[in-house]
Nucleic acid binder design. Structure first.
Length: 706
DNA sequence: GAGTTTGAAACT
DNA sequence: CAGTTTCAAACTC
């Protein structure tokens, strides 16, 4: 099989072979192999192109055979779907030459998949992703570089997680630009039962569970997926999180569909596989359910909707005027097509009207890029802190509604309240009056996030709601991205943490990579950090060597601390990330473990030392984070390893260049806490350092700079 | 099942 | 950006 990298791939081809070897035999690899499943999935890399890829090292190590089998299957499925894709794909996609090429490539690679070519599988993933890169022709070549970078051994690594991002029928997500995959993930996550997921809890995938993919995925993988989903979406909801069997079942379904969707529903035209009736008919179970649903009268349906979903997870909307193309429509909002059980009128939220659907989604997202994010996100209250008391400040459920409710009369005790409906407590972001939310009153909500952000809000006048914060962060990062720091990289969503599409979305595509690459990776090692975007490349070039420098790791904090006292923003960002589960493993006792993922960054051969260093640093980081006191920052500002200030602001130690761009935003992102992200283990994996040679860095710098 | 209430979404 | 309108779900009877 043709294992040679595609021409369009990054210029790091020469290192791929080596990378494979290194990953399989390096301390890092071994270390990773011992990590928990979730951690594995969490690991990610920032490709040279700046894209973020979640890695699942364990796939390549422990379950190679299984993985291969899965990949093979996946590839085959995708190939089959790819054929359909070309036919049924929306015009924009069809018109995408890259897509076609990829499809062809995928077919070709399929033939060779039996040879254990991960590359082939990878191609498929990439192909799918790219084909589904609906409405983003521009991403085309440029993006392909980043995405295809995975051709290296890394390819194997992100297999498990990759499908989430790359295989989702992105076409439906319509809002290609920012949401794309996330939407699908969102819909998938939304399939989680209300009590199970901290989401709307309305969509239980329609019997997608247990499809071919499921059978091919080892139990433990499935379990990992489930755990990831559960953990990511249900943290703070003890009943779900662990042993609750019933929930486990639901989660299992979700996980199954989660996994199976990409495989069986690669067809771009399919929205949420579960919701596409055409697809659903393929399943006997679904068909039966569908009939059952059909028999239901509108009233019946509505009664059932008391639980929002029927057994099949049908949204069963009842729209009359919006044609199911507004967020009023639960199906539409959930990112799924309306199906038979729905009682909607003049529904256009059907596969056959996908163009309209996509257009509608675009329109909505143009208005609000976060419109299709999960309404509920993990709050992640368990940020480790020096003060044990801090960990107990949150409400029973750590999940919170992203935007918060605005209830006036329902007292948040009825399903009119979105918080209540989602089985989550109200939060500081809610504007409800007389909140009596059984899941947690707003008054009782003492979110770290809020506490930390409060100050910032006052200071910067930033919004206080999760959504607003997210918006803020995203916008900032987008701006950051505008600097050309990173290409769009959807793969982020695959964070095994599954953690919510939200997070995936938030970090999705372009955002996270930038943040990660810039913030996480560079902070520690980048002496020549500057605020100038133009200097980014230069910095990147310098990065690689430093990534390998264990000695720099311990200095992360100091450097960060040296930054200005404006740390609130990043604190919020951190909180946001935490809330989206992106860096949830940072929290609590897992801190140490979490730190380990950073190792990849530091060069494969130096993992051990780094690990310890990171642990201490992580702890320090948290100490800092917890202590939002600028004074402390100042105190600690004595950089053990002062960063050279290339930036205009040479008066003071320059923050990690990654943040410098943010600083350039002028929105006050320059914060003394810029170091925060760097301590985020989850980001670590996708750092440029994945390439021990530092090529990624170089490439990233090149690709990102414009 | 019809009508009302509610609050999010959409619009201005 | 705030106020208003529209909408569909939730709820009541």
């Amino acid at each position: 099989m043709d294992r040679s990298p595609q021409p369009s791939l990054n210029n790091n081809n020469n290192n791929k072979e080596e990378e494979e070897e290194e990953e399989n035999g390096s301390p890092f690899f071994k270390f990773i192999s011992n990590l928990s499943p979730i951690q594995h999935v969490n690991s990610c890399h920032v490709t040279q192109g700046g894209s973020v890829r979640f890695n699942s090292p364990r796939i390549t190590s422990h379950h190679d055979s299984q993985t291969k089998l899965l990949e093979k299957f996946t590839t085959q499925s995708l190939v089959a779907d790819s054929d359909q894709t070309l036919e049924s794909m929306p015009e924009p996609v069809q018109g995408d030459k890259d897509c076609d090429e990829n499809v062809l490539a995928s077919n070709a690679s399929t033939e060779d998949i039996s040879e254990g070519g991960y590359e082939a599988s990878l191609k498929h993933h990439v192909v799918l992703r790219r084909c589904l890169q609906f409405g983003e022709p521009t991403i085309g070549s440029h993006n392909s570089h980043a995405n295809l970078n995975v051709n290296s051994s890394k390819t194997k690594m992100f297999k498990l997680s990759e499908p989430v991002a790359s295989l989702f029928p992105e076409q439906y997500s319509g809002a290609a630009n920012a949401s794309g995959i996330e939407l699908q993930l969102n819909s998938i996550i939304n399939t989680m039962p209300p009590g199970c997921a901290a989401t709307n809890g309305m969509r239980l995938s329609d019997g997608l569970q247990g499809t071919k993919s499921t059978s091919l995925i080892s139990l433990h993988k499935m379990d990992n997926m489930k755990r990831s989903l559960i953990a990511s979406n249900m943290d703070g909801q003890p009943s779900v999180d662990t042993g609750n069997e019933s929930h486990e079942v639901d989660a299992s379904k979700a996980a199954d569909s989660f996994i199976s969707e990409p495989l069986s529903l690669a067809e771009p035209t399919s929205l949420n596989p579960a919701s596409v009736h055409g697809k659903r008919k393929l399943s006997a179970t679904d068909a039966g359910n569908s009939e059952e649903c059909n028999q239901s009268s509108r009233s019946k349906k509505r009664k059932k909707t008391s639980t929002t979903n029927d057994e099949n997870g049908c949204k069963r909307c009842n729209c009359k005027k919006t044609k199911c193309l507004k967020l009023y429509c639960d199906c539409f909002a959930a990112g799924i097509y309306c199906s038979d059980p729905c009682s909607c009128q003049s529904c256009l939220n059907r596969q056959e009207y996908q163009d309209a659907v996509l257009e509608a989604r675009r329109q909505i997202e143009s208005r609000n890029p976060l419109a299709f994010l999960p309404k509920v996100v993990q709050h992640t209250p368990d940020i480790p802190s020096t003060n044990m008391e801090d960990t107990n400040l949150t409400t029973p459920s750590s999940a919170r509604h992203r935007r918060g409710c605005n209830c006036k009369r329902s007292l948040c005790l009825k399903k009119y309240c979105e918080c209540y409906q989602a089985n989550v407590g109200c939060s500081s972001g809610c504007r409800c009056e007389g909140c009596k939310n059984a899941y947690g009153r707003k008054e009782d909500f003492v979110p770290i996030e809020h506490a930390l952000s409060k100050e910032r809000v006052v200071e910067k006048g930033l919004a206080s709601t999760f959504d607003d914060k997210l918006d803020t962060v995203v916008s900032k990062i987008e701006l950051y991205d505008l600097h050309g720091l990173s290409p769009i990289t959807p793969s982020l969503q695959c964070s095994d943490q599954g953690k919510e599409a939200a997070k995936s979305r938030f970090l999705s595509a372009k955002h996270l990579p930038s943040l990660d690459s810039a913030d996480v990776n560079m902070i520690p090692s980048h002496p020549n950090y500057t605020n100038e975007t133009g200097s980014y490349e230069r910095q990147m070039d310098q990065l690689s060597p430093k990534c390998n420098s264990v000695a720099n790791v311990p200095q992360l904090t100091p450097v960060s601390l040296s930054c200005s006292a404006k740390t609130k923003e990043w604190t919020d960002i951190l909180q946001l990330l935490l809330s989206y589960g992106l860096i949830s493993h940072l929290s609590g006792s897992s801190l140490h473990r979490c730190s380990s993922p950073n190792t990849p960054r530091t060069g494969i051969g130096e993992t051990k030392c780094v690990d310890q260093s990171l642990q201490s640093n992580s702890r320090r980081l948290f100490d800092i984070v917890e202590d939002a006191t600028p004074d402390i920052l100042k105190e600690v500002s004595t950089p053990t390893n002062p960063v050279k200030a290339n930036s205009p602001n040479q008066n003071r130690v320059s923050p990690p260049h990654g943040y410098s761009h943010l600083r350039a935003l002028g929105s006050g992102l320059r914060s003394g806490r810029r170091f925060i992200p760097k301590a985020l283990p989850s980001f670590t994996p996708y750092t440029p350092c994945t390439d021990s040679k530092g090529n990624d860095n170089e490439n990233l710098g090149n690709s990102s700079s414009k």
